[in-house]
């Protein structure tokens, strides 16, 4: 039996406050636990300012200053054998602390280790491009620009990569609505037919659960379709759809269902 909990004021209490599930933090360990990481961190610390470093899920996470990002990655690539940049992107913390977090995920095949280099930048701050060091940064930095609006200085082709070039807004910002803002909602109509066409084409239908039995234009009336704009009375006759006219078609034999045979013997 379930344990009894007093329910006198249960409706007054808000029993759930978080809108989303807040997962518990994965435990962090000091860097000294791992020999290789300790040496790497010393090498980085010797030349650059490191604000925080720890080990999480067997990877070292290092927080650096945003001005140093190119130099740090250069050091890691040339001296510490972290020769691959497997991923690079950003996280939007604008609401919480008005900053973006940019991360570089590094991999060393020789040491079989991964390091995540992180840094915080301000809202309109640009980062230094690391495209000269790692070719993979080319598209990642373009994607970061596309999704967050963070520019990378000295990138050879700083343009959007996924969204169209004339798109406005940065879709991965937490403030960007999932179903798009005004610009996104009318993008294709404005571009192809012009703004005047908005009235004729009408807004997007975003309510997926909408069923309107008086709507003669959409799919709610399967089997009882009516011409567009008809007044619905509810007594629409059933539309029997068949792929051929009653009288048959010129030069084409009509299938007579009675004459067709279903073969159930595979060895026939």
């Amino acid at each position: 039996m379930r344990a009894y909990t007093p329910k006198d004021d249960v409706q007054k209490k808000s029993y759930y406050t978080d809108r989303f599930f807040v997962s518990p933090q994965v435990p962090k360990f000091p860097v000294e636990n791992d020999e290789v990481f300790t040496k790497d961190l010393e090498a980085i610390k010797a030349k650059f300012e490191v604000s925080e470093a720890y080990i999480q899920v067997e990877q070292m996470v290092v927080f650096i200053q945003p001005e140093d990002n190119y130099k740090v990655l250069e050091l890691m690539k040339n001296e510490l054998e972290y020769t691959q940049l497997s991923e690079l992107s950003a996280i939007d913390w604008l609401a919480k602390e008005n900053k973006f977090e940019v991360f570089y995920q590094m991999l060393s095949m020789n040491k079989r280790k991964r390091i995540r280099v992180k840094m915080f930048i301000d809202k309109d701050q640009a980062v230094n491009s690391v495209e000269k060091l790692f070719r993979s940064a080319d598209w990642s930095e373009r994607e970061m620009f596309d999704m967050f609006g963070i520019e990378a200085n000295a990138h050879p082709f700083m343009k959007r990569i996924l969204m169209p070039y004339d798109w406005q807004g940065f879709p991965l910002l937490k403030t960007y609505p999932l179903q798009g803002d005004e610009f996104a909602a009318w993008y294709e109509v404005d571009k192809i037919y012009g703004k005047e066409a908005r009235d004729i084409i009408g807004p997007e239908l975003r309510d997926t659960a909408k069923v309107d039995r008086y709507d003669s234009q959409r799919f709610a009336r399967l089997g009882h379709e009516v011409p567009k704009g008809t007044k619905i009375t509810g007594n629409e006759p059933k539309n029997e759809q068949s792929y051929q006219e009653e009288g048959g078609v010129f030069l084409i034999k009509k299938l007579n269902k009675k004459d067709s045979v279903v073969i159930d013997d595979p060895q026939r």
Partner: peptide
């Protein structure tokens, strides 16, 4: 795909 990047039906175009 009830999202910002998908056209909600080709009959809009």
């Amino acid at each position: 795909f009830n999202t910002y990047s998908t056209v909600q039906g080709v009959d809009r175009l």
